[in-house]
Design a binder for these strands. Structure first.
Length: 601
RNA sequence: CGGGAUGUAGCGCAGUUUGGUAGCGCGUCGGCUUUGGGAGCCGAACGUCGCAGGUUCGAAUCCUGCCAUCCCGACCA
């Protein structure tokens, strides 16, 4: 492609709308344009990058035996009602764009395709002889994110590869899941990125095992905890760990103490001269289920720890049946307004004990009359601990489970942090890093097939639900993550594997016949040799062309400049700015070799 | 949805406090010179000042309502 004929618009200044480097650079270098919040146009350079990422994904998927297809974006509400997700995905904090057509039919724009694919499987899969089967697509997805951000990182419309596998049993599922683990590692590696595979929470999609593929970058929205020896890595949402031991309690006897203005753990420890590890902190949450029932949850954790709200959500979802509900709609820390709706009396905030009386909850429909009390493992073995006295300005010290307080059901609700010890090997201490989630693989099991009646006939002639897995990779997100991981003050540095072009031939002065002729020849021969090459034949000064070439991040630059009269051109490596003079005849074979070497990685 | 901020030329911004009819830099177009790291000079075009009301002789500027965008949080296969 000739730059003189291409839609090529770069910006000299950072656009005000962008915050992180990759977003600024993609806008400045003319790769993307924002059309609405979280909605972007992929301009010609970006589209080439996305196609390259897609092609790598396609090759690795096909290699595992998965088959490509294309599923509809516009989906009927009926399918989502069958799986039970219509309400949770469209109501309240739902992320599905929903619409009503002219026949008053309810439709949604697909944020994911479990329902559609399960419907297809229900129709097409009859026998165990057809299994296992793995279908995937590379498709635009729609999610009404509450707060889109960082360009393509969290958009409301984005490109994703999603695959769904069907099996007779868990064992077959685990085989495909393992194949996907390998395929995903290949994909991210082939895209030239440094990454970490981590244990993950499976969230609203459900299922058992799940793993995320994190591209490591400071702008990442997720926190990853890992051990130095590589034996453990997990998303902080999922991470388990061994917190530091509690310090022995200085309080020998149980008594109530006056502790004015100690609503925070730090001020309390100051006042009583004790360690946060001797305190039982009681945190109040408000859960709302899909049947409209509100449940007040009182969680007891050690004073130096935080509640992992994802773990709490999962626990509350498990307990949905206790309240005749199916799904949890929201989980919040109730503010003053929210408390007023159900509290019979003002709560002793900051001084709550694990036995806070249930009559703080005013009797009313849709509110569970008793607190759901839960204890994190960190408080289970505490002795002579400090906790609230249910009276503003007072705490109790020297308390014990079984004496003054009843230990609530114990669950792991601990939010792991850097510095904790690994459960796998207590010699290892957890480290922290930021990551961009570019891939996520799940063992779904029979959740959707059972809900939607997708069954097959086994060897013995019995109908059984299909065992499913699903596997996603964010194509547009991965492309931007690559920039986030690879740039310098001059612009983007694309890995050769996904760069929109491999090389750019820069003509410093298009009015010099020698320069133009050499450039035209190199441009034609490089492309013919399979080196995807741009020709900067614009009527611009050399400096402008160099700046633009650096900004858009093409891996190799060939300059037909100063030494042209000696039959030489300059070849510059974008990543290092390393430059060398090279005989014109050597350029094509050399670049061809460099590109082939890079692609073979 | 809670908190914060911003909307003025294609992009980045000043002007708003103190009301008087819109400006700077970059970019764009034309000309001359220049020609290896975002050139210089000369000339030109480009604005419903986010939208709608209101106050006023007069509103980018003051008031009210709305909309959009961005940041923090909550949310997020």
């Amino acid at each position: 492609m000739r730059l003189s004929q291409m839609l090529f618009v770069t910006l000299r200044e950072d656009p005000a709308e962008a915050e992180i480097p990759s977003h600024k650079l993609l806008l400045r270098a003319g790769y993307i344009r924002r059309i609405a919040s979280g909605v972007y146009a992929y301009l010609p350079l970006m589209w080439r990058v996305l196609q390259k990422v897609s092609q790598i994904v396609r090759e690795e998927m096909n290699a595992t035996g998965a088959q490509e297809c294309l599923l509809p974006q516009l989906q009927p509400s009926e399918l989502w009602q069958e799986s039970g997700r219509w309400e949770t995905y469209t109501k309240a904090e739902g992320i599905m764009f929903a619409l009503t057509d002219r026949q008053e039919r309810q439709m949604g724009l697909g944020p994911t395709h479990e329902e559609v694919i399960t419907a297809i499987a229900r129709d097409c899969i009859r026998s165990y002889r057809q299994l296992p089967l793995h279908l995937y697509q590379i498709q635009t997805k729609f999610r009404d994110e509450i707060r889109p951000r960082f360009g393509l990182m969290r958009g409301r419309e984005f490109i994703m590869k999603d695959g769904y596998s069907f099996h007779t049993d868990e064992e077959s599922l685990k085989q495909t899941y393992a194949d996907m683990d390998t395929a995903y590692r290949n994909i991210v590696r082939r895209c030239g990125l440094a990454f970490q595979a981590v244990e993950a929470d499976s969230g609203a999609i459900g299922g058992s095992g799940s793993q995320e593929f994190m591209v490591l970058a400071d702008a990442g929205e997720d926190e990853v905890l890992y051990t130095e020896d590589g034996s453990y890595a997990a998303n902080v949402e999922k991470a388990v760990s061994l917190p530091p031991e509690a310090e022995p309690s200085p309080f020998a006897t149980y008594e109530k103490r006056e502790t004015p203005d100690t609503a925070t753990i730090a001020s309390l420890c100051d006042c009583l001269n004790c360690s946060p590890t001797q305190v039982v902190k009681n945190v109040l949450y408000q859960a709302v289920y899909d049947n409209g029932t509100t449940v007040l949850v009182l969680v007891s954790v050690r004073g130096d720890r935080d509640v992992n709200e994802v773990k709490l959500q999962n626990e509350l979802t498990r307990r949905a049946g206790d309240y005749d509900a199916i799904a949890l709609l929201s989980l919040t820390v109730p503010d003053a307004d929210a408390q007023q709706k159900w509290a019979a009396n003002p709560l002793p905030l900051g001084y709550i004990a694990p036995d806070l009386a249930d009559d703080y909850i005013a009797k009313q429909k849709d509110v569970a009359p008793k607190f759901l009390r839960l204890a994190d493992k960190t408080v289970e073995n505490l002795q002579s601990f400090v906790t609230g006295a249910n009276e503003t300005g007072f705490h109790v010290v020297g308390a014990n489970w079984g004496d003054q307080f009843t230990l609530p059901p114990v669950v792991d609700l601990n939010k792991s942090m850097a510095g904790d010890r690994s459960l796998k090997n207590s010699e290892q201490v957890l480290q922290t890093a930021r990551g961009i989630e570019v891939g996520h693989i799940f063992q779904l099991g029979t959740k959707y097939s059972e809900a939607m009646g997708a069954t097959y006939t086994d060897k013995h002639g019995k109908d059984k639900p299909l065992v499913m897995g699903c596997y996603g990779i964010g194509v547009s997100r991965l492309a931007q993550a690559a920039v986030e991981q690879s740039y310098d003050k001059d612009g983007i540095i694309w890995p050769v594997e996904i760069a929109p072009y491999h090389a750019i031939v820069t003509v410093p002065n298009i009015n010099t016949k020698e320069q133009m002729e050499a450039a035209e020849k190199l441009y034609a021969e490089l492309n013919a040799a399979g080196v995807e090459t741009l020709l900067d034949d614009r009527k611009e000064r050399a400096g402008v062309k160099f700046k633009d070439a650096d900004l858009i991040g093409i891996p190799y630059r060939v300059v037909t400049g100063r030494s042209i009269s000696e039959g030489k051109v300059e070849v510059v490596d974008r990543a290092t700015h390393e430059s060398r003079d090279m005989a014109i005849a050597d350029v094509v074979p050399t670049l061809k070799q460099w590109v082939e070497e890079a692609l073979a990685r």
